[in-house]
C-alpha cells in the first residue's frame, strides 16, 4: 500500500495488525493501544520499529513509553473528527515525540496541510483517492498567521 510520508509518495513499510490477528515474524507492525498495553515490553523487545494506533479519545499520556515507539497512528473516524490535531500537537510539542506521526481513517486531501502543521508527517488516504494530486494540497496555503508545530513564531513576530 502507498502512503504519503514527508510530502512524498512511498510504499508503506509498516503493516497494520488488527486485534486478534497474528503478529508478523519480523518487520514493522502497527498494533492497537489495547494490544500494546497488554504486552508492551514483549512487543518493544521483539520489534525494533514498533507502531501503535490510537483512537481519538486517547491522550498522549495514555500511551506508556511512547518515546520508544517508531510510529504513532491517530485515527480520524469521521471527517468531523478534530481531536487528532491537538493530540498530535501535544505529542510533538509537550512530549517531544520524534517518531512518525501518521493520520489514518477519514483523512481528506484538504486537511493535509493542517494535519502537517500540527505535527503529522505521514498520511494514509482513503482507498481510491489519488495521491499525486493530494501532494499538491501541501502547497495550497503556504502562509500562516499562527504558531503550530511547524512554526514557532506567530505572524506578528515575523512581519
Amino acid at each position: 500500500m502507498q502512503i504519503i510520508r514527508n510530502r512524498a509518495i512511498t510504499d508503506d513499510d509498516f503493516v497494520h495488525v488488527p486485534d486478534g490477528t497474528e503478529l508478523p515474524a519480523a518487520g514493522k507492525p502497527i498494533v492497537t493501544l489495547a494490544r500494546y498495553t497488554a504486552a508492551r515490553e514483549e512487543l518493544l523487545a521483539r520489534y525494533p520499529a514498533l507502531g501503535v494506533r490510537i483512537t481519538p479519545d486517547k491522550l498522549p499520556t495514555d500511551v506508556p513509553e511512547r518515546s520508544r515507539l517508531a510510529l504513532i497512528a491517530i485515527e480520524f473516524p469521521r471527517w468531523t473528527e478534530g481531536r487528532g490535531f491537538s493530540i498530535a500537537r501535544q505529542l510533538r510539542q509537550r512530549e517531544g515525540f520524534t517518531g512518525e506521526l501518521r493520520a489514518v481513517g477519514w483523512v481528506l486531501r484538504d486537511q493535509l496541510r493542517y494535519l502537517e502543521r500540527c505535527g503529522f508527517n505521514a498520511f494514509e488516504l482513503q482507498p481510491g483517492k489519488p495521491l499525486a494530486s493530494a501532494l499538491e494540497a501541501f502547497g495550497e496555503l503556504p502562509h500562516t498567521y499562527q504558531t503550530a508545530v511547524d512554526e514557532p513564531l506567530p505572524i506578528y513576530r515575523r512581519r
Binding site: 486537511q111 493542517y114 494535519l115 506567530p154
Partner: peptide, 17 residues
C-alpha cells in the same frame, strides 16, 4: 483584529466539536 488573524486557518482548531 488580532484574534481574527490568530484564528484564521488555525490548523489545530479546524474541526472543533
Amino acid at each position: 483584529e488580532i484574534l481574527r488573524q490568530w484564528s484564521t486557518f488555525h490548523p489545530e482548531f479546524s474541526n472543533l466539536p
